[in-house]
Every structure is written in structure tokens, then in C-alpha cells.
Design a protein around this nucleic acid. Sequence first.
DNA 1: ATAAAATATGCAAACGTTTGTTGAAGAATT
DNA 2: AATTCTTCAACAAACGTTTGCATATTTTAT
Lengths: 342, 342
Amino acid sequence: MGKRVTIQDLAKELGTTPSTISRALHDHPGISKSMTKKVKELAQKRNYRVNSVASSLRAGKSKTIGVIVPMINRDFFANVISGIEEIAFQNGFNVIICQSDNKVEKEIQHINTLISTGVAGVLVSLGFETTDYTPFDKISQLGIPLIFFDRAPDHEKSIKILNNDKAGAYKAVQHLIDQGYRRIAHLAGPGNLSLYKARKEGYIDALKDNGLPIEERLIVTHNLKREAGYEAMKKLMNSKNPPDAVFSASDYSALGALLYLKEERIKIPEEVGIVGFSNEGFTKLTGPEITSVDQHGKEIGKYSAKVFFEEMTSDVFIPRTIILDPKLIIRGSSLRNQKQNT
Amino acid sequence: MGKRVTIQDLAKELGTTPSTISRALHDHPGISKSMTKKVKELAQKRNYRVNSVASSLRAGKSKTIGVIVPMINRDFFANVISGIEEIAFQNGFNVIICQSDNKVEKEIQHINTLISTGVAGVLVSLGFETTDYTPFDKISQLGIPLIFFDRAPDHEKSIKILNNDKAGAYKAVQHLIDQGYRRIAHLAGPGNLSLYKARKEGYIDALKDNGLPIEERLIVTHNLKREAGYEAMKKLMNSKNPPDAVFSASDYSALGALLYLKEERIKIPEEVGIVGFSNEGFTKLTGPEITSVDQHGKEIGKYSAKVFFEEMTSDVFIPRTIILDPKLIIRGSSLRNQKQNT
DNA sequence: ATAAAATATGCAAACGTTTGTTGAAGAATT
DNA sequence: AATTCTTCAACAAACGTTTGCATATTTTAT
């Protein structure tokens, strides 16, 4: 249970002062080569590690980034975090992860602890229910860069890294149309979230651009869960003029739909095509595998972290929105023509 | 971009000193009720947040727990982290997540940054390749509680929270035997990891206890991946006296096995039964769903965090191993009798 | 009324690092 | 030889909080 080696211990041992040690370790030009070398060797030998708490205090901020996500046990968020970490560690930062569990109170609590911790920046993906964004203002007011990804406020005064949900949805539906499907249903998410609104718009636009009718009865708003997808599909298939394809705003409900169809021995993709959204890991484990829109979480994470570092060094704040184009991963559930993966 | 409110600002405003403010905020008995009230009200009004960097420096340690895991985008680890976070936040701590990516160098790097950050404790699940545990000694030497979970060193001088892999495997194989399977193959993990050794032992013991022969040809060591499971199953099924069930040390290879069997139109569970390990999310999404051994990650996480807090407050270090019993989740891939889920 | 005890607050140091300023010594210039 | 420059290192203050000790005030006991 040895005591931690400080800069002062090194100073004493070399008969010099803490300031010299500090400068030597940072390759300050005012320190002679010989001294710098001596100091570094001793530091190495004594296994010195900078006390970042002390240096954070002195500097007024720490080398830590706070990340708030609804939950980490979703492929997408886990990947985003991986991406953030990668860039952060490259820059000598580390990452504090906070789960909001989609609860507003937890978000607020996390904001407070992150401020207390003196994080250098905060990256956030909002919870479902969050409509009041003022708690986040505290962060910016303190001059701490704040970046939203994936689920962001709908006002214009923040920095956001988003998926082009509309384009993703458009691609998905266009693909279904290309495959010859004509009555395409949509399992839509809660309308209050702009991201689901965008997916629905992409769906509608694709239909319109192809001269297909928009049928309200084919649009089912649901809670994105597997069970809801199952039930929605059941209802749709038992309606008068059932759809020949479904584009779901969620992979989970796409899976639900798939399970219902398999139960009824309705052939996928021959009779009904399916496309989901998010490219969850399980989409390539089903039979048939589910075509899905990939949001490349890791890229979003990397991007968000990079934007944070930009922001940290710049002193002018420019609200902006960066939109990454998602990619359609075509798999068996929607591929009834010859066409191959793009 | 307001400046952060400090204890000194409050002191000035109330015409008192920082020490009084600090004590009042901590309900120190030496401060009068009236003063305490005044201080707290002002703190609230000015939106004061303690600067935990400063208090960490003063205290010599921070209210942060470091967690090192191979990767977070695995259900098990994501759940463990959820569990750790839950307990940590209840105690006013937060959590720094580090991914080792199963690389030794990354582990070492993370150890160093965590020490620099002044974490109050470190919870670790080792990477695959880690055989030299001395880098972790630095942590304990500094008096920082160090707790291993799931993948731990095999020496006796540390605190470990483990799954009873042997018991889990035993349960799995016993279940297969109960279901009438008799030639049960085992897809084993790398033998140098004690956890896979334990699973293999559980498999062997269960066979022995039921008077079944141990056949070396039915034990295939593989890298736990889906493709390896597929190939292993192919080889097994094309051997002279093929197995009628397979117990895999990994859900991914269990899935590979399942996919091979389905491709060959071999009926599951009628002709061949399958049991996996880890209860990954996708096991209940396949057709049929895969029976698997659940390691209840969240519980392990909670437990580990609790042990850390115990350790933090105790001053005697007692190496110990806590073994949690995993649960067999019985699903369609192994259920050919009437017996129901337990 | 005085001494002792209890209560409430202030003072100052400490945690380890960083950095502006100062000063001493040696090198270069005149 | 005297002066100016340059190079290197030391000094000291600061970041915000906490806490042992000292001090001032009030209360209680004698």
C-alpha cells in the first residue's frame, strides 16, 4: 500500500523544485535538455503518474467527457460509445457514461453530477420523454461544449449530430418499391419524436415520388416493441386489402412482424417484404435475415467526439447540425429480385 | 457563459467564510441551525454545485469508480455496467467505462489513466489474453480496492465475483439428459481460460453422474464464434455416430450450430437439441429459441459494486471469491418433452 | 459575579499541479 | 573589463474544498 509519487517527491530527490519537474515533464523549452532527461528518467523509475485531479483543479477543467444516453445495452448506443471512447482516448481523455433510462429526472441528476465532476464536455442523446431542454442550458452557460447526437432538441441553437432518418426511410421504401412491392405498410414511432416523424416523411415521400397512394390504414403508430410489431402485423394482414410489404421504424417491431408472418406461414420475402430500422445485431440472425437501415453508431460516436474537440478549442459558438447518411443493408427479408447488396 | 459559483462566492455574499459554508452544506453539528438554513437557501438560489475536483483533491480520492471490460457491446457486459451504475449512483459515485478490446496494452493504459484520475476503486473483467496480472497490482498497492468479475486471475489473492460456470454447464447438460438426449456434444472454449475449463468440467461431470460415456470425439474446442459453431456442427453431424444434442460454451456458436442444422433440415429439438451459454438477447429471437444459461449480468454488476463499497469502508483486505449461481433458461431448442420452464 | 463549559465561527494550512515573474549565472558583445 | 543577452531554475500564487485548531460569544453552574 505504497503512497502515490508526486511531483514534489521527484523534486526533492533531484534537489530541485516542483515547477521544474512539471515543466520538464511537459517539455517546456525553458528547461535544459539534460535536466529534462534526468527528470523523465526518474519519473519513469519511480513510476510517477500525474495526478489529474490536481491538474484539473488547477486548469479549471478535467480531461473527461460526459456521455448521457438512454441506455447502453442497445447495439446502437454501445457502438456510439465505442466510437466516442476511441477518439477520446486518442486525445488523452476519458469518458463517463450515464444512463438516463429515458427518464427526465435521471437526466437532470446526471447533468448535475457531470457539472460537479468538471467534465470538459457533454455528449447527449435525449430520452424519449424529454421535451424541456432548459436543464441542458446550464451546461452551455458554464462554457462547457454540449453536443447532441441521434436524439436532439428541435430548436436551432445547439450542435447536433444526426442521422438522416428521412433519407434512410426513403432508401428503405424505394428499395421495397424496386423489389416490386406496391402496398407498403409503415409501423411508425411516436409522432412527438422528430426522428420518427422524419422516418414517416421519408416513407411518404418515397411513395409519392413513385406515384403510389398514401393509405392511412397502412400506417400504424406503435411503441416500437416486438409485441407491438406482432400485433400490428396481425391486424394489417387481416384487413381487407393487406399490405405486401412493411417498413418499420424499429427492428424490434420488424422482428415482431416477421414472427407473425412465419407463424402464419406467409412467405418472406415472396409474399410480404420487411425492412426494419437500426440494423440491430439480431437482424442478421433471423430467418430470413432482416433488411435494415444502418445508422453506423460507431461513426456517429467518433464524429460527435471530434466535434467536441473542435468545439473545445474554438471560442466562437456556431450552432450547427451535421447529418450523416445512413446505409440500407439489404438482406433476405426484402430481396425477391435478382438485385444484390449495395 | 456565467462563471461557476464557488463556496467563496457564497461566503462573501453572506459575510462569512468558506469553512462555515462548507460545514453548513454538510450539516456539521458545530454550525447553528439558522446559519445552516441561510447557507442552504443561498446555495440553492445561486445554483451552487460542489466542485468535486477540488474536493477530490482535498480528500485524496474521487467519487468515481473505474470499470474495465473487454467490450461494452455485449449484452452481458452492458448489463453488468448497468448494474454497477445503479449502485454507484445510489451512492453518489459515477462510473468511468474503459474498453480493453481484449488487448493487454489497452488494459495497462486504462489502469494508468484510472490511477491518474484518482478513482476510488476499479472493477475489472479481464481480456482473453491477459495472463500477467502484475499491472493490476499497482492498483492495490495504492490502496485502491480492486475487484474482478466474470473473468478473473486464477490466483487466490484477489476479490472475485464469478459465475458458477461449472454449475451452469452441469444444469444445461443435465437438462439435455432429462430431455432424453444421450450423445451430447460440447463446443468448448479455449482451454487456457478457467471459465471455459469450468464449463467443460460441468459438462463432463453431468455425463459421468448420469452414467454416460465421455467421448473425446464429441468435444470440439473452438473460438466461440458463430462460424466456428457452424463448422463444428457440420463436422460432428457428418461423423460416424453423430450427436443428438450439443451444449455450447457460447451462444454465438450455438447459433451457428442451429443455422447448420436448419440448413440441413434436421429438426430442432426433435432430432438434435441445442443449449448455449450466456443468454444473449438474440437467443429468444431465433426459431426455435435457444435454451441458454443466463449469467444475470445486472446482478453481477450490482454485486460487484456493493462489494466495492464494502471494501472501501473496511480496512482489512480479505481475498475472497463470490460465486453466483447461473440460471438455465429453457426454450424451444432443447425442449422435446412436456417439461416446462423452470 | 465569576469561572467553567458549551456553542458557533474564523483562521490557516493542505491536497498536487501549473505558470507568471523574478533572479542568478554564464555567454556574448562592446 | 564592463555591459548586455541568454539560458536555466526557483519562488510563489492560484485552483476550490475541507478540517484541526484557535478564538469569540453565549450559556450554565457555582
